[in-house]
Amino acid sequence: MKNIVMQLETLSCPTCAAKIESALKKTAGVKDPEVLFNTSRVKLYFDPKIIDEEGVKSVISKLGYGSLSVKEIS
């Protein structure tokens, strides 16, 4: 399991945050996603055997939100 924090483009409504969060929850290989509205960030764990960073990014971009940076937490 890898733990990452992603900085997204500014989220302008809390429902967008809720939407991204439930989409990630339903994505295979992603665990405990948490979308932070005020800081426009996503925290999550993912299993590198099932999905990679790009895969996570594409779930979010398909919903219409760009990701600016990804940082791994040790």
Partner: peptide, 11 residues
């Protein structure tokens, strides 16, 4: 549409 795929009905 993409949200509906995850069964989310939003604004």
């Amino acid at each position: 549409v993409s949200a509906l795929r995850y069964r989310i009905v939003g604004i």
